[in-house]
């Protein structure tokens, strides 16, 4: 039974290895920088995020073109749609577009001889709203924002402590008692996690997973701060010699912790570093306790001779 289970597990886990194959069900040619001359047949889509490319007259592209940024000169044939979001699109005299041309932004230069078999949509795409530019922060704005952040996190801490008191306690304990290990794990999770999520973005298909991962990473950092805030609340209670309920203690502790953190983060040069260290400790504590589901016990406690 165990062997069957292991074999099944091995088969399941080896499935991701198919990702290492050169050709998949979906193909995309991604251009991020440099100058490229495209000749011959291209079966997939073309996504341009930068650089320059020329689809030469003998080249054919079966899929769609998404021009986000960069320069694309089309001399050959495109069977799919062309979406111009940003950058420069030039249709040469021999260009043939079998699909639609969607112009949402960027600069478009058609040549007289170019042929577009589908329809051309102009200005009907998504238009990005013009955001008002903020030259300066209004007086007291930063303070107000920081206070609001601290209160919001304080309330979240109180609610979490009310419903998941043990989880918050475990995270707080791991972060405060094993700060070095938590910081190290947090650093690894942060650096490797962000690299992994960015890599996922390049696959296009995994962009939603990447966004979810980023959200989970942010949530873990905040949960870590709440854990540290809960420990701060307990310390405050001890210093004031006033017993506080866990939820109240978590609220006050998180409020104070976040305000102090924001104050420290405003110190030039070392402020950012302090912020990163505290975020890493929080993230590490959450990772070590599996979001507070288990208590973290250092392995060496059981291993080392007294």
């Amino acid at each position: 039974m165990k062997t069957t289970y292991l074999l099944l597990l091995l088969a399941l886990l080896s499935l991701p290895l198919t990702a290492c194959g050169a050709n998949g069900f979906y193909q995309v040619n991604l251009i991020t920088d440099g100058e490229h001359q495209l000749t011959g047949a291209y079966p997939g889509d073309l996504l341009m995020l930068g650089g320059g490319a020329t689809l030469l007259s003998d080249a054919t592209l079966q899929g769609n073109v998404h021009l986000i940024s960069g320069q694309l000169i089309v001399e050959g044939q495109i069977f799919g749609d062309v979406a111009l979001v940003g950058g420069d699109l030039t249709l040469g005299p021999s260009a043939r577009l079998n699909g639609n041309l969607n112009l949402g932004g960027g600069t478009y230069h058609p040549s007289p001889g170019s042929v577009i078999s589908g329809r051309t949509h102009t200005g009907t795409g998504v238009t990005l709203p013009d955001l008002p530019e903020r030259d300066s922060t209004p007086p007291g704005g930063t303070l107000l924002r920081n206070l609001l952040n601290a209160f919001l996190l304080g309330f979240s801490a109180a609610i979490l402590t009310r419903y998941f008191p043990h989880s918050v306690a475990r995270v707080g304990e791991a972060a405060s008692r094993h700060a070095l290990v938590s910081g190290s794990v947090g650093l690894l999770v942060g650096v490797v996690g962000i690299s992994l999520l960015v890599t996922m973005v390049y696959t296009i298909l995994l962009i939603p997973v990447s966004l979810l991962g980023l959200f989970a990473l942010g949530l873990a950092v905040v949960f870590g701060w709440i854990g540290l805030g809960r420990t701060t609340g307990r310390l405050i209670g001890q210093v004031l010699n006033r017993p506080l309920s866990p939820a109240k203690s978590a609220f006050i502790g998180t409020l104070v912790f976040v305000l102090v953190l924001e104050l420290l983060a405003s110190i030039p040069l070392i402020g950012d570093l302090l912020g990163i260290i505290v975020a890493a400790i929080g993230l590490g504590a959450v990772s070590l306790t599996r979001f507070g589901w288990q208590t973290f016990v250092p392995a060496t406690k059981a291993d080392l001779p007294n």
Binding site: L180, G183, S184, V192, P298
Partner: peptide
């Protein structure tokens, strides 16, 4: 330095997993 902290506190399997995982990525 992070590895030093982790070696003294974590079991070895997670550490090996981290190394192979990072190499794969």
């Amino acid at each position: 330095m992070a590895a030093g902290a982790l070696y003294t506190s974590l079991r070895l399997r997670p550490l090996f997993l981290w190394v192979f995982g990072i190499f794969a990525l």
